[in-house]
Design a protein around this nucleic acid. Structure first.
Lengths: 269, 269
DNA sequence: AGATTTGTATCGAAGAACGATACAGACGTA
DNA sequence: TACGTCTGTATCGTTCTTCGATACAAATCT
């Protein structure tokens, strides 16, 4: 399971915004404590939390206490260390159910999944990354379970490229410059110029495709969802197996349906 | 979509713990601000946030500002009001990937789903409620998309009853007493004594069943997952359609597999 | 057994958060 | 049009909260 988790591309680090008269430090620190759990792979002790959050052990102590009594933290197995608490999932629910895109997209994507019979994902665009809102599986076969909040790179995924296609070239270049162009598979395109060409293709076609660039043996079609202001909010992403499909077949069958779905969603926003 | 969301059973309200010398108030307030979005159905203005969080508008202003620059809040559509921000999903990921139960259960449940070909859920036990960690769909048909963080009642779901069966009678009674025994369908059992009988059945069988008590037309088998200390951590939940199955058939085919899966998970904890 | 961890508890000084107050723009209404 | 009320934003002095030092017991490692 752990092996399926990639490093998050460019997570905006806790930027405390020094000298901001409106900034509430203690509030920020509580979140810094919770953020200490990003990227770690097990329970954290008080001192570890303090170090990662960049605060004193005493401060950590009191904040951890506060978070614990509220359910945002809990003790780890065998009462060793701390883990993020289930209370956080309440906020997950708030984010998802209040998100206008998720609200509109859900029924449409349920329908889409019923017709395409392949894996359908919805991801949300957040500055420089794509965050998974949910995945609707299909078929028996599953690569792995995707967890909400997992984020995928923009440069080598179908959804990501579809989003880039909706942005002006200058922002595309900027995002690519800020991305770590890691080769996740032998097929991953890491040359910025080639990526930009792919993006231009996507711009013409109205959808983007990827063949095994992020996941071995996966074909995917991605279509961007635009907000009222014309800016990309997220992307639909349909993925299938290269064992069953050629890229061309997949595109021919899937892409029109995705575009239709995307328009249905965009129009209802 | 909204119509699929039930009121959360007994969410532990923000209990500020007055006169706790270790309590960091500003930290608690930040979370109170985020919690203001529970149960609402749209963007919240500054004053609404203040009211719901029980703080002054000025305090709300600064905390909202702090949360906004950190990505925990964002402006709503058309720049009206505020919504919970995507940054929260990073913490969702932390909760899920660091949860020992989720870690162990994921591969087992992927396998389980492959063999049963029905919907498989994992939910986590949190004091008086069951919170969804994830759902693995199967088949074409889907009732609706379940969102992470959604919680279901304990008293009338298969997973819930399985958990009750793992608790001593006194705690069962206590939890039932604290639950709102709402009839979600005409089939919902709301009589505490009858529920306790069901729980005793589940205790004998090693699994619990439910027929259309929470969702019309759904059969479900639930099996509890025990921690090392013998206390319930969560539940596996397999659901099918009454249009395809009788309760007996479903149980006969599904229950043994669920129990096996549960034991595989418990043993690896 | 000794040396570090762990989590917990207490306290006074320093400083940050509180809440009052003020202002401009958007919105709806008369 | 002019009004009132909402929105979000900005500034400031006093108070009360948070900070970080210090201390202690229990568990864990060496």
């Amino acid at each position: 399971m752990r092996s399926t988790l990639r490093a998050d591309p460019a997570v905006p680090l806790e930027a405390p915004a020094e000298n901001d008269p409106l900034y509430v430090r203690a509030a920020g620190r509580a979140l810094a404590v919770l953020s200490a759990f990003h990227h770690v792979d097990g329970p954290l002790s008080l001192s570890e939390i303090a170090k990662r959050a960049g605060i004193d052990r005493s401060a950590a102590q009191r904040i951890v206490h506060t978070l614990k009594v509220s359910g945002y933290l809990r003790r780890g197995p065998n009462n060793r260390g701390y883990l993020p608490g289930l209370r956080l999932l309440d906020h997950t629910l708030d984010v998802l159910r209040l998100d206008p895109l998720v609200q509109r997209a859900t029924p449409v994507l349920l329908e889409l999944r019923k017709t395409v019979r392949e894996r359908v994902d919805l991801s949300l665009f957040d500055e420089t990354r794509l965050v998974y809102a949910f995945r609707m599986q299909s078929k028996r076969e599953t690569f792995y379970a995707t967890l909400v909040g997992q984020s995928v790179p923009i440069f080598c995924t179908a959804g990501g490229r579809a989003i880039l296609a909706a942005l002006p070239d200058e922002r595309v270049v900027d995002i690519l410059r800020r991305s770590e162009l890691t080769a996740y598979t032998p097929n991953t395109i890491t040359n910025p110029d080639t990526i930009i060409e792919q993006v231009r293709d996507a711009r013409r076609n109205g959808f983007a495709t990827v063949r095994g660039e992020f996941l071995q043996g996966e074909v995917a079609v991605g279509v961007c969802i635009l907000g009222r202001d014309g800016l990309p909010l997220g992307a639909i992403h349909v993925g299938g197996s290269l064992a069953e499909w050629s890229l061309e077949e997949f595109v021919e069958k899937i892409a029109p349906l995705c575009i239709e779905a995307s328009q249905a969603i965009s129009n209802s926003l």
